[in-house]
């Protein structure tokens, strides 16, 4: 509901950007998706930290699910970002942009998480290794997020600065609604996937008991 409402407002109520015109409407899609990917990776790292801290094994599945959601949203970020780049810069990808390359590194780093996870046998060792890996990856998030500001790039736009949001209030309202909607969507995915994985694990246990 939030997403549909946010996008309806973005298309029919928010003013068109003076510089980018209609193509700026991707902003309401691309940026919330990217921030949601960061949030999912951060959530995965938090759950990994809880696992290492408490030793409670249920955090392993939660961390894994969050990383999985983060990778899905990370892929969507790269695809929508490429489409926006094609309209704005005339090319699908540019290696000269630090933020793009750093996001790609972040995405590939977390994609490798699954290779690491499934290369070891299930058990405490796998859970610990996965948790340490997920925790390491979180360091890349602020680096990726701040790269555009540190580099002082001229291609990738910087909307949110130290002085506040660099856009009209109508755009900001639409953006915040879309961000809320995207986070809610990711949260729903997370809960559904986690419930599925837990049910799967319980059924496996039950099958072993009945065998």
């Amino acid at each position: 509901m939030l997403l549909v409402g946010g996008y309806a407002l973005a298309f029919y109520w928010a003013p068109e950007d003076a510089d980018q015109g209609f193509s700026q409407k991707i902003f309401y899609l691309h940026v919330p998706i990217a921030l949601t990917a960061y949030a999912a990776f951060g959530w995965g790292a938090w759950k990994a930290l809880r696992l290492l801290w408490t030793g409670d094994r249920r955090y392993d599945l939660e961390s894994y699910t969050a990383v999985h959601i983060g990778v899905i949203f990370g892929l969507l970020t790269l695809v929508t970002g490429s489409i926006w780049a094609k309209i704005s810069w005339g090319e699908w990808w540019t290696w000269g942009e630090r933020q793009l390359v750093l996001f790609l590194i972040l995405f590939l780093f977390y994609s490798s998480y699954f290779m690491l996870r499934y290369s070891t046998e299930p058990g405490p060792r796998r859970e610990r290794n996965s948790a340490v890996y997920a925790l390491f990856g979180v360091v890349l998030i602020p680096v990726s997020f701040l790269a555009v500001r540190i580099a002082g790039t001229i291609l990738h736009p910087t909307v949110f600065t130290h002085e506040g949001a660099n856009l009209p209030w109508q755009m900001l309202v639409c953006f915040l609604i879309c961000l809320g909607g995207m986070l809610a969507l990711a949260g729903t995915f997370y809960r559904v996937e986690l419930a599925g994985k837990r049910a799967d694990a319980s059924l496996r246990e039950l099958r072993e008991l009945l065998a």
Binding site: Y7, L29, L76, T80, I83
Partner: peptide, 17 residues
């Protein structure tokens, strides 16, 4: 327009996903 096609494409990516 070309921009409209690309924007539609981007939103369809989310819908497809």
């Amino acid at each position: 327009t070309t921009a409209e096609k690309y924007v539609t494409g981007a939103y369809l990516v989310l819908l497809g996903a």
